[in-house]
């Protein structure tokens, strides 16, 4: 399986897999569900405590390429988002400390459906590699059509003082041309 397929689909060869239904898998699943609940309710300040200070949060571009070149369908030389802790906190600050975050004020109605969660252990005992599928629906103003962003996320969750925190997230979106007017929202 090529690396790209692995990145998009996760890999079927998983020597370090943590079974679905195990205690750790259940905890991680619940954590991601709770994260979705926070973001869908614009509890971004609460969400800010879920990310670690060394977080890397990226959304690469996608490109339409032939099957034989599918390693080039994920473009990391340019991104839709390329965030660290400070920039994420600036985004949170816009929403919580100003009255001029107009892209999300009034806020979108969103629903994050997070599924297909697969967990692997890593060479660090306190970190887990987590792949999840997501569909985000977004609706603003009087729109009667729902904007949809579908994606797969590759996360590293780190256990800190008994709590799972987000230490890395790469979001591979399924669009070469994104169909929403901005990413003023977290995926």
């Amino acid at each position: 399986m090529s690396d790209t397929k692995k990145e998009i689909t996760g890999t079927l060869v998983r020597p370090n897999k943590i079974p679905v239904g195990s205690e750790i898998h259940n905890r991680i699943t619940e954590t991601l569900y709770e994260e979705a609940l926070m973001l869908d309710n614009m509890l971004v300040l609460e969400w800010s405590y879920f990310v670690t200070k060394d977080i890397s949060y990226t959304v690469p571009l996608r490109a339409t390429r032939l099957l034989e070149e599918s390693d080039k369908s994920i473009v990391r030389s340019m991104m839709h988002m390329d965030e660290d802790y400070n920039s994420l906190m600036m985004r949170v600050g816009r929403l919580t400390r100003t009255k001029s975050a107009f892209a999300e004020d009034p806020p979108s109605r969103t629903r994050r459906l997070i599924t297909n969660i697969l967990v692997d252990s890593t060479n660090k005992p306190d970190e887990f590699a987590v792949t999840s599928y997501g569909i985000l629906t977004r609706n603003r103003y009087e729109e009667h059509n729902t904007q949809v962003v579908s994606f797969v996320r590759h996360d590293i969750l780190r256990e800190i003082d008994g709590e799972l925190k987000l230490a890395k997230r790469e979001i591979i979106v399924d669009f070469a041309v994104l169909g929403t007017q901005n990413l003023a929202i977290f995926l």
Binding site: L61, A63, V75, S77, M78, H80, A176, V177, L178, G179, T180, Q181, N182
Partner: peptide, 8 residues
């Protein structure tokens, strides 16, 4: 630095 971002 890379290809352009594209969105609608």
């Amino acid at each position: 630095v890379g290809p352009p971002q594209r969105f609608i």
